[in-house]
Design a protein around this nucleic acid. Structure first.
Lengths: 206, 206, 206, 206
DNA sequence: GATGAATGAGTTTTCATTCAT
DNA sequence: CATGAATGAAAACTCATTCAT
């Protein structure tokens, strides 16, 4: 993973430490939320002293922001998977192929708890909102690049495709919320309906 | 001093005080989240001493729960509006008729901020989760009652309709999340697409 | 006890209320100590509102003092029992006859908990100390009156008898402390030894 | 780094801090009792911030318990003094030799105030009761060891000696209580009588 | 006499953050 | 780089007491 250990030995170790903190904090935030997680808990989870953590992060907020940024990469990775999918087909077909996996992810507590925490935080914390919006833009960009590569659906212009892509994002977000509130959710049934909606949005121009 | 005391002299005043606390707390929670809101803030907002607030609520959690319960009434009201709609039409038509209003509501910061806070809390607070699920059940019940009254869509049984209703709920939830993160959202366009999805789910059995 | 109920109707009711508070408070103090007992608890136990309790007592301290005073009567009653004992015998014999009962009382949690609480409070609260000393004086007075009536033990003057009486009190107090700390205490064995000590103190002048 | 750290570098300082808190708290408890002493008072007395005190003790109760445990060492020291007394003599003689010192100690306000507070607390706080009982067991053990070494008094078995030892403890406890309540106590006279009682208990088998 | 709503200072405890080592 | 002792403001909650009714 780290080929340049000889060139920048200290920086790499520092980065590793940062990630160590972020990993620990992510786990804590998941379990207890941002406000339910004290620096002390993160210290224990990361096996690091508070003083040392403050060497890498200005304050708790900075840790939250770093985690929000890291999630971005997570999401763009998904977009890239879509790009790299070589099985071919129309835009609708390609997106539909990812639905089951994405639904699974949206219903995974470990994912959903952090995402909801972030969304709620974004609703009132401008810094977090800005970060999440940036992620959003990146993802939308990837999607639009894909749609241009495989061809816009019949009868839609780029703006319309973007709107519909956003609606698809919304649907996944909605599945996530239901995952937190809903009791017994049948993943297969949800995937089936989401797939249907994706086709409806991307195959049917009117 | 009090002409309407005939019904319930002291109890009414007590209930009014409770609502006063709940109103104040709702505002605070919206702005700062549950965990960012101290009892002291609520006191100031409600113009009431901490001791007095604790006279009406056992603890902070009880305030959160009371607010979650109050939201239920908010939501079931919507379901009832659907039931009372006398303009007729199929299930899809009736639901579609409410879409614009519902989208508006989902994008209203005052609504969305609290709902996201509740959803995030539900992800790790079982008591809140239980309350939200209860609301959910009530709403689903209303919807199913309506669908039986106006007739199930062709080719679907009650279970399938329930699944699709839940998906519609998810879509609204998703719109809400986008509302918190997304920058510039065109309500009209969103409504148009949601309406399309509603018709797709309730008119098209396959 | 109260023959003039017709002359002072309100005062009697007031006195009854006072006793009602004192009874309730005694129970609470026993269970939770003075400082672990809130006025609210006493209110609930007495079935009376805080405002009303403050009508009868200036403050919490006044309740504690009233209870301390009431205990005095409890103790002097014992002294009187000793006075009224018509079975005859020397001072030692008469006192020894009460030992078993007194030991039982000292080991009764309901008695001991309150007494220890009072003793601890007396150690730092001068008002309580004064009250307890007053009780002490009364009891000592009764004892001395008795000893003069039945005759001082051979070879002792009044001062010496008083010293020894105080030592007997100390022994009972000590049994009480052991009752609070000690695990398994055999009342019969304790009574036997206390009786022996009483005889040693009152029969043996050297 | 630290030349005097040869034995235990940071641990010693930590232990010193703990003792500093315990010393400060002991003073406060003596003056105001456990429940009349706030953490804030202890902070001021110890010259330490609340956060720091909680670094060493989980909560206020833990401080009380630590003090109760520390008293044990105080008491067992006395028992050991008895063991180490090389002046010889029977059990009664040896114990009698310590009476004056012990009475002095029991009448020392600094000692008595804390002991009574502990006894009162033990009456309703099981954790404290357990600690005090443990101290008791240790002391009894020392006494019994001594009595076996110097020989059981004529006509008594070990069980009887133990009972009488407990009674002697009770007498000292009783002196302590009188010390808190009683006004003018003549230490010399008290010692004389206690000595007489000790001889009565340990020299006279019947 | 009697209630209980109302207060606000006080309680224990937590926590983000700093700093000497 | 790394520690963890130390801080002090703020959190949730309690409670003796008052007062309008």
């Amino acid at each position: 993973m780290n080929t340049s250990s000889s060139t920048a030995p200290g920086q790499d170790k520092g980065e590793a430490r940062r990630q160590q903190v972020l990993d620990a904090a992510t786990g804590c935030f998941r379990r207890d939320g941002f406000h339910g997680t004290s620096i002390a808990k993160i210290c224990k989870a990361a096996g690091m002293s508070p003083g040392h953590i403050y060497h890498y992060f200005d304050n708790k907020e900075a840790i939250v922001q770093a985690i929000a940024k890291r999630e971005e990469q997570n999401i763009t990775e998904l977009a890239r998977k879509l790009q790299e999918d070589e099985s071919g087909g129309s835009l609708a077909t390609r997106v539909a192929r990812q639905v089951a996996d994405s639904v699974d992810r949206c219903l995974d507590p470990a994912y959903l708890e952090l995402q909801l925490e972030l969304a709620a935080e974004a609703a009132r914390n401008p810094a977090i909102r800005r970060i999440l919006r940036q992620s959003d833009k990146v993802v939308t960009g990837e999607f639009m690049a894909l749609s241009e590569r495989v061809g816009l659906p019949d009868g839609m212009d780029a703006a319309e495709v973007e709107l519909r892509m956003n609606m698809i994002s919304a649907i996944f977000n909605g599945v996530m919320v239901r995952g937190s509130v809903g009791a017994d959710i049948d993943r297969r049934q949800v995937s089936r309906l989401v797939e249907k909606l994706v086709r409806c949005l991307l195959d049917d121009a009117d």
